[in-house]
């Protein structure tokens, strides 16, 4: 997901998110007797047949795999609750319903390992899929609010997986707007970015044109609608250690985002081709 120019590995992989989700507690009903387990993450049990107890997800799945318990799906995973959530998600274009932080991972784990413990599994599954879709669509259109004056973005009620998916886009969009707002930083970090390929000022050189395109794919696939075709392109051209920044939103130059202080070279148009 992360573009190669942003390789600091801050993204969590899906597997790592699942790992985190496996620490969430869930209720199981054991069918065997076992002494309490004294684990690094806490003490669980004792386990008695037919008496429900709370354990972390990974423990529940491990016991389930060995046929030692049944898992009680969490309350929010009922058809009734999910239908309500889905309706509310559809009703409100602006806000998100509170869902467990790891709802995608938790439901996935349960679908994979405890199908027989979930009543109406097909219904539940398709409801969760729908909720996921509606939310992703909203996230996509919601991200349009990012603008040059965005200093911080509140991601209310977003969950782990959702945040992780939009992270590369959000981070780079905010970063770009921040840079455009602060031309001196742009210059500085741009010099830094170009350090690895020091064209320096030795001998004649071709104008170096570096085009960074980002966001487009994610944006369109998230929002889906044909109405959004914003392509934010930043074209960095180096000429004699001076940098020209040109910014397009779609095919239109956005006035205030163009740094007026960008130097004596001035700004030119470039065909969006």
């Amino acid at each position: 997901m992360a573009s190669p120019s942003d390789p600091h590995g801050s993204d969590f992989s899906a597997a790592e998110l699942e790992f985190l989700a496996e620490d969430e507690t869930i209720e199981i009903v054991p069918n065997m007797r076992m002494d309490p387990l004294d684990m690094t993450c806490g003490v669980f049990g004792p386990f008695h047949p037919q008496i429900a107890t709370q354990v972390p997800m990974w423990l529940a799945v491990a016991l389930k795999k060995r046929g030692k318990c049944t898992i009680r799906p969490p309350e929010w995973m009922s058809v009734e609750k999910l239908t309500q959530v889905l309706e509310a998600e559809r009703d409100s274009q602006k806000s998100f319903q509170p869902l467990p932080f790891h709802y995608v991972e938790t439901s996935r784990l349960l679908f994979d390992h405890a199908r027989d413990d979930i009543p109406d599994i097909y219904m539940v599954r398709s409801l969760i899929e729908d909720i996921k879709d509606v939310r992703f669509h909203k996230i996509g259109s919601g991200l349009e609010v990012i603008s040059q004056r965005t200093a911080a973005l509140k991601l209310e009620n977003l969950t782990a997986m959702e945040v992780n998916i939009v992270r590369p886009f959000v981070v780079r969009a905010l970063q770009t707007f921040y840079k455009l707002d602060n031309p001196e930083i742009t210059q500085e970090s741009d010099t830094r970015a170009n350090r690895r390929f020091p064209a320096a000022n030795h001998g004649p050189k071709r104008p170096l044109k570096r085009k960074q395109t980002f966001g487009f794919e994610l944006y369109t696939s998230l929002s889906g609608g044909p109405e959004i075709h914003e392509l934010l392109t930043i074209d960095t051209r180096r000429t004699d250690n001076r940098y020209l920044f040109q910014v397009w939103l779609g095919f239109k130059v956005v006035g205030p985002a163009l740094p007026e202080r960008s130097g004596p070279l001035g700004l030119g148009w470039l065909d969006p081709a």
Partner: peptide
């Protein structure tokens, strides 16, 4: 009970993973 043993083993593996990943992330940086 082999079940207890293997569950404890899993618990330990999880901590081990976290610790390794933590140290590795630092080494990468």
């Amino acid at each position: 009970d082999p079940l207890t043993v293997s569950l404890n083993q899993m618990d330990m593996d999880r901590t081990l993973f976290l610790l390794r990943s933590y140290l590795r992330t630092r080494l990468q940086k």
